[in-house]
Design a protein around this nucleic acid. Structure first.
Lengths: 134, 134
DNA sequence: CCGCATCCTTCTTGATACTG
DNA sequence: CAGTATCAAGAAGGATGCGG
């Protein structure tokens, strides 16, 4: 498993004059995987940003136990989520969004907004493009 | 090829009270692929946001012709890039960032910034986590 | 020069079964 | 209930050759 959050041009391109050197790419290696953002998001909506594994699993439609575990493990490793283990009779595990975890979601707001604004235009472009291809 | 920019919870979860309903996920299906952001970024730095194929290929270190073509085709389809074809003797093709294309990069600034701020902390968490696993 | 088709490899995800 | 291990399926990416 590649556990990197890769940032921007892995290539040795010189920094540019105009903007800061790095486009936010590759974070998407982690954030872009199938369940990560869903998990962060669901946690952010929970009371105290905290849910147990089974609840999370139940509410993220379609996620398998395996993938949820993997996703949470990676988030924990990155410090975006904290794991609380209760050694009870049926064991209980809760996951909590950290401050940093909440920060990612805020950082995604701009993108989220952009998508909302532009999705119609994008879909229109696609329609035309695909049509022209016939 | 899946050409969707999928936004947020594909699941039928009810909109939440607190935030707007959708976390910006899945855009990463497109933006998160290996070369898309690199291409947008490189174009944004170019004169008139415009470069020919061969230049792009030369400057994006490691990209194959196939992947660059695919990436550009998808960007063109979405309306983030325009393709200009010149039927010359050795054919020439230029790609130009559209307004909307430039918009994505701006939308990514928040994320980009967040990564810069938090990468050290993330890497520290990883170090500790991995160490504890021994 | 640019693009496409083909083949092959790697990574991610899903399905399933088993353990503390 | 939560986690792990194993196996199989699929998608993404890379290598290469041909064609306009």
């Amino acid at each position: 498993m590649d556990n990197s959050i890769r940032v921007g041009s892995q290539q040795g391109q010189a920094d540019s004059p105009q903007f800061r050197p790095i486009p936010s790419n590759g974070i998407c290696t982690r954030l872009g995987d199938k369940w990560t953002v869903h998990v962060l998001w669901r946690l952010s909506l929970a009371n105290e940003c905290r849910l147990r594994f089974s609840t999370l699993k139940k509410e993220l439609d379609g996620v398998t136990q395996r993938m949820l575990t993997l996703t949470l493990r990676n988030l924990e490793r990155d410090g975006l989520v904290t794991r609380h283990y209760f050694p009870e009779v049926p064991p209980r595990v809760e996951y909590e969004l950290t401050q940093m975890g909440a920060g990612v979601l805020r950082a995604l707001e701009g993108l989220n907004y952009w998508v909302r604004e532009n999705l119609p235009a994008i879909e229109e472009h696609r329609r035309i493009f695909d049509e022209a291809k016939q």
